[in-house]
Write a protein that binds this DNA or RNA. Structure first.
Lengths: 148, 148
DNA sequence: TAACAAAAGGTGTAACCACACGTAAAGGCG
DNA sequence: CGCCTTTACGTGTGGTTACACCTTTTGTTA
């Protein structure tokens, strides 16, 4: 049957394999960050906000290559736990996100945990492989975004 | 400030970059599969079930490197639309998944769409880069799963 | 300046994801 | 045979993801 043959190809689906790896490594990092009671997504957002100091939701979403509405909802748990603050800017349309002191504290606790997890991955993968991986991932993002 | 310096490193977080690429490419494939009214996750599951013919939920989850409970819920929309059937086996604990004829039909329609999307990515990335990417992704999955 | 377009953001809806916990069936063993 | 462990699976809960659609505010232009 023709379909059966075509299906064999799907093993090499870039999307499937990326999603699979994404799931696996997310569990790895989530587990590593457990002592800080942070998910890796939350850690990522917290880092981005800290780095930016004060930033609108849309701009932050662009930085993270994340849908604006996704970010809005992902900020909710962080806001509820007092890690970030969201407030209107002088332009009444905008909302600025900034880190609260409680957020800084949890980030201090999470950073070494992240570092350890990252180290483990880099060590097993090898520095060069990781560099290549990050480069290809970056290209993949670019490709995915062009040509709607 | 020490924290600020540490934070600079997080740009190279393997997890963040994998998740970012995963989001981007998922949108790319989802868009490509839109004419077949399938998400890439659903396409993936449909392919895996078709390939396996008839398979328990747990085994299928292992194949897809996906949490069993996630798969249970991901099957729901496919079941609701009559693409797959889930029924108990002779072992009363197990539930076997198989493709319905409606599922085969939609898969026929989706396959060329997937092929086109995949082709675009491979062409832009280059065959060798893609091969390296898949290899590294596979390693990443293995690494993430060892050492709890 | 009034009208219209662009920018920033939220909500409804629906899917994806997994941990913690619970249930029932099957298998193994004293 | 009765007890215990393992296996297979579902649900509750809470977070992640994004499309479609809507509102408000700002900027532009006829």
């Amino acid at each position: 049957m023709k379909t059966k043959l075509d299906i064999a190809n799907c093993q090499s689906c870039v999307c499937f394999n990326l999603r699979k790896a994404s799931r696996a490594i997310t569990q790895f990092y989530d587990h590593a960050l457990k002592p800080a009671d942070l998910k890796v997504t939350q850690f990522t957002i917290l880092v981005a906000v800290t780095r930016a100091d004060s930033i609108t939701i849309s701009t932050l979403a662009k930085h993270l290559v994340m849908d604006r509405t996704t970010l809005t909802r992902n900020l909710r748990p962080l806001e509820a736990r007092g890690f970030v603050r969201v407030e209107a800017g002088s332009d009444q349309r905008t909302r600025y996100v900034s880190v609260e002191s409680e957020g800084e504290r949890v980030l201090e606790r999470a950073l070494p945990l992240w570092q350890a997890a990252q180290q483990k991955i880099v060590k097993k993968l090898g520095v060069q492989s990781m560099r290549d991986l990050l480069k290809t991932l970056s290209e993949t993002v670019s490709i995915s975004q062009q040509a709607p």
